[in-house]
Design a protein around this nucleic acid. Sequence first.
RNA 1: GCCAUCUUAGCUCAGCUGGUAGAGCACGUGACUUGUAAUCUCGGGGUCGCCGGUUCGAGUCCGGCAGAUGGCUCCA
Length: 594
Amino acid sequence: MADVAEKRDKTREREDRLHRIRHSTAHIMAEAVLRIFPDAKIAIGPAIENGFYYDFDLPRSLSPEDLEQIEELMRNIVGEDHEFRREVVGRDRAAEIFSDQPYKLEILRDLPEDEDVSIYAVDTFTDLCRGPHVERTKEINPKSFKLLNVAGAYWRGDEKRPMLQRIYGTAWENPKELRQHLDWLKEVEKRDHRRIGRELDLFSIHEEAGPGMIYWHPKGGRIRQAVEDYWREVHRRDGYEILHTPHIGKSWLWETSGHLDFYADGMYPPMEMDKSDYYAKPMNCPFHIMIYKTGVRSYRELPLRWAELGTVYRYEKSGTLHGLLRVRGFTQDDAHIFCTPDQVESEILEVLRFSLRMWKAFGFTDLKAYLATAPEKSVGSAQMWEQALGSLRQAIETEGLPYEIDEGGGVFYGPKIDIKIKDALGREWQLTTIQFDFNLPERFNISFVDSDGKEKRPYMVHRALLGSLERFFGVLIEHYGGAFPAWLAPVQIVTIPVAPAFNEYAARVADTLGAAGFRVESDLSDGRMGAKIRHHQGQKVPYMLILGEKEEAAGAVSVRPRSGPQVNGVALDEFSATAKAIVDSKSAELWPSG
RNA sequence: GCCAUCUUAGCUCAGCUGGUAGAGCACGUGACUUGUAAUCUCGGGGUCGCCGGUUCGAGUCCGGCAGAUGGCUCCA
């Protein structure tokens, strides 16, 4: 126990130290920028994950060469070993110091009146700042920070305010950590799903046909099919029914749901037909409610668990689109649960468990939940919020999932759990969401007949586990770097003859394995075997089967798993059985070790 | 949508201060008939993102538009 506490203290100490270093480096950068642009207006410059930034209002835009120059200046300043001096000053004095810094004056104005105002000075640079900082610049290693890029950023994040130039940098305790971080950034770039998507021929996007729209190629389609097959199977097992609903709906539907009032900006504009306006759906829920309303529902038929791989369209601003991760058309793995108040707790627990099982199957085990409570304006009674929140919290705690409470971060129509998953590079992705909806049942006036014969309002829960198939695909690609486990790989096996004389055997083996249910190809092209191995290794095919005279004579194959050493002379039946077991178990391992 | 940068062959990229486009990979062809991460030969392929301007002449300079990239913002 003491060890754990000690370790936690050490971690916190290190984080604190890094925070000081980063924040102080940001100040040094501001000084360097001011030396080059004496008229620059400075905004804010905090420490962030892995580094820092500082926002400036400058007479001209910065170039990469400017960054080099700034970085050089920073090293000089750091090398001169200046002291960081903290001083508490009166407001008037502060206003005087920053009289030609309008952004600082604005911050000063917004600080609570009873709070001390502190300033930090280092060398020639003084900043309005709460701190903390390092004591002297020698605590910053001149070889352990690097400026990364320049980006536009609105003052105070408000698009109506001026656009500033933000310089991002990364800073560490020592050069080795910096190098590791830069390597990590390289790895991130290598795994970029847009690059891998092209290299492995998985998907494409076409500006001339509509940005933000995903075209799944045959190999991407195979992966999607494997995902969907699994998804349908586990939903069936978990008592869900699968729905299919239209892509467009008349304005009545979106007026009733409230989307046109609250969400019109996010919707594609209407198509007019027969004097009615039709909208592409941004969500599936109203359609599911229409199905709910086709009959009188008894408490005996609840809970209803209705799922749909429903393709929705949302207008996303052009600047926000990003590969598969931010798109305008996508397929949600959506479901709506209609249940009685008594069933809420067990339904939520089951949804959460279901979600955890699914993530495990896809190879994600590091999950964290975020529980969002009521925002200022909300619909639904306090008692409903309380019960719903209680069931969410209960479920998280029962499952022992780490979680944080996002106070007031909920949406107006109900509390929710968002689950973030951590990928192989330690990045968090928010995909799963489980949300109560107190709004739509009201608006569409849905009900069930309870055991006492009275009509009551059911609880409605939205949930998407993978989120959207497109976004999930992007995360999956980056998580595995394109080296998918055998059950997901678009091509699971390639047979490679050592020479053309064995083409016939390679084709026969491929046929046999194809008949056994594998996604298999034979490479009978003209190239040398070495070139074929290189090619398919690059395509990250899980199994290459090398076939020559010895193999053919024995009815065997030599297995070259994507990872790990080749296994020679495996009987074809045995290979087939072993590979099938690995595929069926969704294992990340490709071959039994030992 | 906003700021910055970018857009040359299917992909990755060269093309200096303006003088009518080039490499590697990929693809096609022919040869070789091969045992573990690139065999050799020859060849096809680009209205240099689109529109306009400056110029005797624009891939190159200027303007507009589109898209992409890095951010900001948004994501009831």
